[in-house]
């Protein structure tokens, strides 16, 4: 992590340094996340954007140390609220999950257990982490469901997930995430599976609730429109690396990495001009089992030079709070 960013905020809530994740697969070792540096300040929303397969979900899961048996997580440190998560035992880590850091997933249809009641699932983290009785936890679950605007929460406690629509289920997921008053909520594409109107409601709800509780948020998305509206800062990922990070407005006004520029060109712009044709970035996302030695984006980059193909460029500040991993193309 560079001086520029650290000096901007004294102690971030989450500070990730040199986080790498690799998976053993049939095709060899897949390096899904490669030396990622991130930080999230208390109360802020950091968006992580990138194409499918760029390592967003794996980054999130590795913060929770839930990457599965075939994955290996490496980091210099992952400081969360003063503790190095990388150094915690599995039992200590369990006390962080669902308690200090909570997660919301993409698929509200399948992320809730079909055979357990909503009440039980929302109450569960409170029983687990706060030592409440099931009864007391259920009582609080009512309040939580109310906060995520589920009508008649008391009557819905004994309903099962299949009684709810996708949007309602995602509200339940949010209620569950809020149960223990986490300091950080990681929402992994929380609205991708929902229709557009519901998407906006859910994101607005998340924004309101995090503002209310002071929780910070990592919002994973590949929708730059969402980023503009709901994020304070953005980290752009490509091929398992962070290639650019900046405050949201700065990134929009002044994207500095060729990949970010390509992404920008491929979304409808917010300030009108609906007739403008969308561009897509030519070429294929990189094969993580077989990354090129240099910049992962070089094969698709219009500005790529010899230098770019030799070693990956480091993430360096180019303006206050604005970092990019590129050798430059001027």
């Amino acid at each position: 992590m560079s001086e520029a960013v650290q000096s901007a905020t004294a102690t971030p809530l989450l500070l990730v340094e040199d986080l790498s994740v690799s998976f053993r697969t049939d095709r060899g070792t897949v390096r899904a996340v490669d030396s990622v540096n991130l930080h999230v300040d208390a109360g802020e929303t950091l968006a992580i954007v990138g194409e499918s397969g760029s390592g967003k979900s794996v980054t999130a899961m590795s913060l929770m140390r839930l990457v599965g048996d075939n994955g290996t997580v490496d980091s210099k440190r992952v400081l969360f609220d003063g503790i190095d998560l990388g150094a915690l035992s599995e039992a200590q880590m369990r006390k962080v999950r669902g308690n200090r850091i909570a997660m919301i997933f993409q698929e509200p249809m399948s992320s809730l257990n079909p055979v357990l009641t909503i009440g039980k699932q929302v109450a569960e983290p409170m029983v687990l982490h706060q030592g409440l009785s099931w009864r007391e936890a259920r009582r609080r679950a009512v309040t939580l469901l109310q906060r995520v605007s589920i009508p008649d929460p008391e009557d819905r406690l004994d309903s099962y997930p299949h009684h709810f629509s996708g949007g309602m289920r995602q509200r339940v997921m949010i209620a569950m995430a809020l149960a223990c008053d986490p300091k950080l909520i990681i929402a992994d594409e929380p609205t991708t599976a929902l229709d557009v109107t519901v998407q906006a409601q859910i994101l607005a709800l998340l924004k309101d609730l995090t503002r209310e509780t002071g929780a910070a948020q990592i919002l994973i998305t590949h929708d730059l429109g969402v980023v503009a509206r709901y994020a304070d800062r953005v980290a752009v990922m490509y091929g398992g690396r962070v290639v650019e990070t900046a405050p949201a407005h700065e990134l929009y006004a002044n994207p500095q990495h060729p990949y970010t520029q390509g992404l920008m060109a491929s979304v409808p712009s917010l300030d009108g001009d609906p007739g403008k044709r969308l561009q897509t970035i030519p070429g294929q996302p990189p094969d993580l089992a077989n990354l090129p030695p240099g910049c992962a984006f070089a094969p698709r980059c219009p500005y790529a030079r010899d230098e770019c193909r030799q070693a990956p460029p480091p993430l360096e500040p180019i303006a206050p709070q604005h970092l990019r991993a590129c050798y430059g193309y001027e």
């Binding site: 929770m64 669902g98 909570a102 399948s110 997921m173």
Partner: peptide
Amino acid sequence: RQDYIRTARAKGLAENLVIARHALRN
């Protein structure tokens, strides 16, 4: 492999509770 098992783990449940409460009945 199901998503709700991932949810259960992300809640901080120990593996035996994940199995007993969330996986077994399904």
